[in-house]
Structures are given as C-alpha cells and as structure tokens.
Design a protein around this nucleic acid. Structure first.
Lengths: 196, 196
DNA sequence: ATTATAGTTGACCGGACGGTCAAGTCAAGT
DNA sequence: ACTTGACTTGACCGTCCGGTCAACTATAAT
C-alpha cells in the first residue's frame, strides 16, 4: 500500500475514533510509520488531510454499506430497515474492537468544526446532501408504487437523515449500540406532509 | 460577578461556540480577565472545568427555555411545538450574533469526547436522560388525556430527543437555523408502538 | 494586632503542537 | 552516464498547551 493511502487510512481511523483536534500529525505519522516530511509531501496541512479523509470516507461509505442498504432490488421501505441493521452492526463491531462506539465520522466532524471552517462545513453538507438524496429517491419510489401515502419526500428525507444522525449521537453518548435497534423502528414512521 | 462564575460563563460560551479541544485555558483566562493561577484555584483541571460547565449549562437549560417550553399549563403536544420554536430562536439569535449556529452544547461535547472520557460521557448521558424524561412525561400526559393513541412513551421519548439532536446537527452543518423549522413538524409524528 | 484563609499574581515547566527545510535516496527517462 | 523529479529522512522552528508554584494581597475572625 502506498504511503498516501497509509496516511489516510490511519487518519480515517483516528479521526473517527477520537476527534479532529485531538489527533496530531505526529501520531498519524508514527502509526503510518513515516516521517513528518513525507506527510507534508502529500498534504499541505492537517486541514488538507481531513478534507481528503472526508472525501475518501464518503466514497467508502457510498460504495460500502450504504450501497448495500439502498439495494434497488429490495422493496423501498425495506432498504431503510437494512440501513438500520447495517448501522447497528458497524457500530457494534467498532465497539467490540475499540471499546467505544465511534458514531458517524461526518456527524462528529460537523459538530466539531462547523463553526470554525466553512469550507470543511460545506464539504460535510455535500456528503449529507447525497445521503438525503438517497433517502428521497427511496421515498419517491415507495410513493410511486403505492407502498406509502404521498408526502413531502424532500423534507422527509432530510428528517430521516437527521433522525439517523441523532440516533447515532444518542447511542454514542450512552456507548450502547443497542440504542440503534431500540430507536430504529421510528425511522420509517417519520413523515412530513406536503404543503406544510 | 465572582471570579468562578466569570470563568464558567466564558467557558460555556467558548466551548459551545467552538469545541472542548480547541479552546485553551489561556484563552478562557484572558477573556475572563484573570490569571492562570486563579483558574487553578477554582478548578483542578480543564476536565474539571468542563464538568462544571456541563452541570451549569444543564441547570440554565432546565430553568430556562426547557422550563418554558414544557409549561404544564400548555396542552401536552403544544409544548413540543413550543420547544421547536425555542430551539429555532435560540440558534437564530446565536447565529446572528456569532455568525454560526453553535448547535447543542451537550450534543457537541457528546460526539467530541464520548470515546475519550467515560466520566464526562456519563455526565452527558445523565443530561440526556433528564431531557428524555421531560418528553416521556409529556407523552404520558398526552396519552392519558386522549390526545394521542397509546404508544411506547419510553422509547418514543428517546426517539424524539434523538430527532431533536439530529435536527440541530444537520442545521449546524448547513449553518441554517431554518432547518429547524423545516424539519420540526416531524417531531410530533415520531412514534414507537408498544410491544415492538 | 495577629493569624488563618481565600484569592490572586505572573513567571515558569516540560512537552506537544503544526509546520519547514536542507539533504539525501532511488527509480525512470534520455 | 546523467538528469529529472517524486519521495523520504530527521533535525529543527516558534508557538501554544495544560499545569505548577512561590510569593503576594485582601478579608475577616479572634
């Protein structure tokens, strides 16, 4: 594996499990077994790195379990159940490994740096926008084939994303992945009617 | 105002608008117009301070707009509308002042430090627990007087809290308080049925 | 007046931080 | 054989970090 990939791999894990401010470049370099100069050959700054990490993680995510969950072969509303399952198993596995639920990297970073860096914030909103679109398409499909009554799919999609993030936040705060199962069933019940 | 109060007041504002790791003791001391030695007379560590800040903020919150919103004179479900309003105005006002939505201090801290300090995490879960109880009592009351159909008030309360936090997260990520209004109407629609 | 205590000062500590840089390695292109 | 340019090394920079400390002052009880 190339040096650059080793850096982002280590950084992804550290940023996800701790926080942006808490993880230093030195530690990243040590864990990636490189020197600081090498780091600055690939990234012009720590901020540049986290930008790359967000991008990569969004890719991993989109092609990973999100892609699985939003399987077009599944009935639309079942995809949402699948998503809850995937979120649960991921967080559960991470906790078993590291001792703590890492939560959602995007949510974590959003709350940490949104007030401090508008470029990073914009990057994160773009990630959230894509996730929202995934929900919206699913809802549109469900409405189209009559599985659910018509509703404001745009807003409902946004609300579902918010609920997903909120669930993970609460679960992380109690370090209890079961929270995701306990609260997951409400995700499908979220509705925002048209013309509110 | 006493020195200790000045410290916590400054710290509350800084931690809320930035993050725990990003705010240094030096800066807190400067803004509170005291010396570092004075700080360590009142607090044994930065961690000790943030513990006090969480406690104080939870008090402010409980006696402030949460107390207003959960007014027992209001019909139970209207309290939730009121809560959305209060959250919106608070975040809006903060954004107009500082340029950025600070979000929820407890949510921010929870995501930042949950994986790193179990004592602080426990403190935050205690705050969330109280908020959840507020929701649960409101739901119980609404069920009792027939305003809503019976449901799992325990879990639904937790889900509502999660949704509230998630909404604020998404709103902060887009630095747009209007998000709270756009998504707020779904809060009351959240339901978790009994015997799931 | 003396003493005890609470509060305050500002210099100081070691170490970590993000970031720089001159020097060198090495493989591919000519 | 020589040059180029990507990559790596490790020492180094100034600054800031959380935290310590001995000395000083203000207050209030005896």
């Amino acid at each position: 594996m190339g040096t650059r990939q080793r850096i982002t791999k280590v950084a992804k894990s550290l940023f996800h499990n701790r926080s942006y401010a808490d993880v230093g470049i030195k530690e990243i370099c040590d864990k990636a077994e490189i020197q600081k100069g090498s780091f600055y050959h690939f990234f012009s700054s720590k901020r540049d790195l986290v930008l790359a990490v967000i991008e990569e993680f969004a890719q991993d995510w989109a092609h990973g379990f999100v892609h699985e969950a939003f399987d077009p072969k599944l009935p639309p509303m079942e995809r949402i159940d699948y998503l809850i399952d995937a979120a649960y198993f991921w967080q559960k596995a991470a906790k078993d490994l590291e001792g703590h639920m890492p939560g959602c990297l995007f949510g974590n970073l959003a709350l940490e740096i949104s007030t401090q860096d508008d470029v990073l914030r914009a990057k994160l909103t773009a990630v959230f926008l894509k996730a929202k679109e995934r929900f919206r398409c699913t809802l549109d499909e469900a409405v189209e084939c009559g599985k659910i009554k018509p509703l404001d799919t745009q807003r409902t999609a946004e609300a579902m994303l918010a609920y997903l993030e909120g669930m993970i936040l609460i679960a992380k705060a109690s370090n209890d992945p079961e929270t995701i199962y306990r609260l997951g069933s409400a995700l499908k019940s979220i509705r925002i009617e048209l013309d509110a």
